Amino acid sequence: MAEPHKIRFGILGCANIARKVSRAILLSNNSTIAAVGSRSLEKATTFAAENGFPKSTKLYGSYEAVIDDDDVDAVYIPLPTSLHLKWATISANRKKHVLIEKPVALNTAELDKILEACESNGVQYMDSTMWMHHPRTMKMNEFLSDLDRFGEIKSIHSVFTYKGDSEFLKNDIRVQPDLDSLGVLGDAGWYCIRAILWSMNYDLPKKVTAIPDPEFNEAGVLLSCSASLTWGDGRSATFYCSFLANHAMDIRVLGSKGDLRVHDFVIPFEEKGASFYTVSGSNWSNLSLGWEPMPSECIVETDLPQEALMAREFSKLVSDIKFEGSKPEMKWVNISRKTQLVIDAVKTSLESGFAAIEL
């Protein structure tokens, strides 16, 4: 069997998350790193050396040089959210395929400009929501789609929290109003909202309402918040995201006949295996001394971490466009835009005294 074409990535910037994704690109069998650029050549050189980049990787002291390199097929953009619009549209207009960190934009209007540039130039777009590519996600979806075991969906609760130390809360990009003004809503909240939409088969809610008592830093950036989503037919969801609470990455999906629980949906406890729990037909045991049946644990193993599977999927789509004449896959465009729409609605509700925002 012929070796797959290797898609050549250029990396814009040396953010900490780029260390993880660059490793993923090199673990995938259909991608490699062709170039990395930073605001200084010295930083790009150090980053490449520390992360084991191929010796052939070109090192640049600017983002423009990466985008202008003819040996780069696609760019990975881990820059602060406030820079995504500029560099994603420049990349797309130079015919580079775009893999972009979340939150993908500060609002839907900005995202639409990015998506328009990608569509008009025929390049593939994907956001870097890694858990979507883990094989566990497909297995969980099989359970949620089983009308006999799970039934009809009723409610979802999603949580993503982690406790930032004093340095993080003071200086991290995610708490700077000029870099990532969405704060925790754009960072951890993105994952919670994506989990809810995924559970609902991407059916947008009718109303989104922020819940009172969010927490902000002195610069007015969100450090914790929560919201409720309703569909107008009895289905509902809530989420909580925070930089101020202990690590938690949970999804709980309740159906009319069963329920699903996962405790590490964003980043699995272990790289090569991930689990979730399901139960159907729950009831009290004799004398109400316990429950029966007990939840069942399903363990899903993988040879590659979820971020490498993401890189492989993105690279396959790019390869199909480049070598097979395929059109860009629009699934990722639609999912990103729906996630951003809900982000916008939560933000609007927060700013309007916790009013219900209709979508």
Score class of each variant (00 low, 15 high):
S62R: 08
A88L: 08
A48F: 11
S31P: 04
S56Q: 06
G37T: 06
A88Q: 05
S28N: 08
S82G: 02
A49M: 14
E42W: 15
P54R: 00
S31H: 00
L79M: 09
G37M: 12
F53A: 04
T46K: 00
L59V: 07
S31T: 07
Y76E: 06
V72N: 01
A65N: 03
S38Y: 02
D68M: 01
D70I: 06
L85K: 15
A49V: 13
T57S: 13
L59P: 04
T81A: 07
D70C: 10
A88G: 04
F53S: 01
F47E: 06
P78G: 05
F47K: 00
I67W: 03
L27T: 12
T46G: 07
N29V: 09
A49H: 01
E50Q: 13
W87F: 05
K43W: 07
L83N: 12
T45L: 08
S62Y: 12
E42R: 09
D68W: 03
A48G: 13
E50I: 13
A88H: 06
D73Q: 03
D73N: 05
I33D: 01
D73F: 11
K86I: 13
L41M: 12
L59C: 14
S38M: 02
A88P: 08
T45D: 14
T46D: 09
A48K: 13
D70G: 04
N30F: 05
L41T: 10
H84D: 14
N51I: 07
A65M: 11
I67S: 01
L59W: 03
T81G: 09
A65I: 11
A49W: 07
S62D: 02
F53K: 03
I77D: 00
S82C: 13
D69R: 02
